[in-house]
């Protein structure tokens, strides 16, 4: 059985000698990300790291630790809490903050939650708009953050393939894809006027496989929801909906125990689980690799239906 310890980064492979031994791609990506973290910490007054608790955030957090070691991370973390995150996510978040001594800020759109905002009554688009985008913009404004790190990767989605590493946002927090600053070498233009801000994506050049591989190599803790185990699910057609919120109603016979896990972490009513046996990181990677081939055709057909991410991003979403 593959264990994490067998994936310790070997120093011979990771560090080049003077004869020019090759650096691994992960070491190169890590060096690039650390340079970005240090640049932002030096150039901005009030940077913050958006912490979404997922795997990308976990890698970002480790890279931030590395960038400022042996010093502490010189900026706070901000979690935009929709109120519908999984309990295991919140517990993991609080535990990480405690163990690492992080300055963790949490922001919720309390007004919308008090008004009963949820995806069943509002629809997902309006719900996301209120509990994510509005909350994010309000949270950034509340503390006056002028730069915000996000864990988005360019391989995730087509509009993200064109996003800069330093992504300029106007006074309303919005992105103008046709008017992006040219970005050459690793020379980032960090100058902004009052009220404007920059979203920074230190994981831009990482792929999903790189993220999982780095988690394995570095032994980075992740939320247990990523690992397969018997979980109570509402089984509806091909979907597995985790049983967590009372407003998600099940029909008789729909609730079953299913060996399953989450591929990405979001709000419990809107995040489907998958049937899986992957209960270790190497198994998750094996599963990822096998999905990649079988899902490829779908991806290509799917591609032109959306543009929805681009719209969300223009409005201020990450």
């Amino acid at each position: 059985m593959a264990t994490l310890s067998s994936f310790e980064p070997s120093s011979e492979a990771a560090i080049p000698d003077s004869t020019g031994k090759r650096l691994s791609h992960l070491k190169l990506l890590e060096a690039e990300s650390i340079q970005i973290f240090r640049e932002v910490a030096a150039e901005f007054q009030k940077p913050v790291m958006l912490y979404s608790i997922g795997k990308d955030s976990s890698v970002m957090l480790r890279l931030a630790q590395k960038a400022f070691f042996p010093g502490p991370i010189p900026f706070p973390l901000l979690h935009i809490d929709t109120g519908y995150k999984f309990h295991e996510m919140i517990a993991f978040r609080d535990q990480m903050a405690k163990e690492l001594g992080l300055d963790l800020r949490v922001w919720r759109n309390e007004q919308a939650l008090a008004d009963g905002a949820n995806p069943v009554t509002l629809g997902t688009q309006r719900c996301c708009g209120l509990l994510k985008t509005t909350a994010l913009l309000d949270g950034l404004r509340e503390w006056g953050f002028d730069a915000a790190f996000g864990g988005a990767r360019r391989d995730e989605e087509k509009s993200r393939a064109k996003e800069r590493i330093f992504s300029f946002r106007d006074k309303a927090g919005q992105w103008d894809p046709k008017n992006q600053r040219p970005e050459v070498w690793n020379l980032y233009n960090a100058r902004i006027s009052p009220g404007e801000s920059i979203r920074v994506f230190p994981l831009s050049n990482w792929t999903e496989l790189d993220i999982w591989h780095y988690i394995a190599l570095e032994d980075i803790p992740v939320v247990p929801l990523y690992f397969a185990k018997e979980r109570k699910m509402i089984v509806r057609a091909d979907s597995l909906i985790p049983v967590e919120q009372s407003f998600v109603q099940s029909l008789p016979g729909e609730e079953q125990m299913v060996k399953s896990r989450l591929r990405s972490l979001g709000c419990s009513p809107c995040t489907g689980a998958i049937r899986s046996e992957a209960d270790t990181i190497p198994k998750i990677i094996a599963e990822l690799v096998s999905f990649r081939s079988s899902e490829r055709a779908n991806r290509v057909i799917d591609h032109d239906t959306d543009g929805s991410m681009e719209i969300k991003k223009r409005e201020g979403y990450f």
Partner: peptide, 27 residues
Amino acid sequence: MPIEELELETDFAIEEFLEAEAAKDLL
């Protein structure tokens, strides 16, 4: 490919796969 099928044979193989991945450089 059904995951269960993959499951049976991967434990050792995935380790080799990851080692090969770790040795890759970047262009």
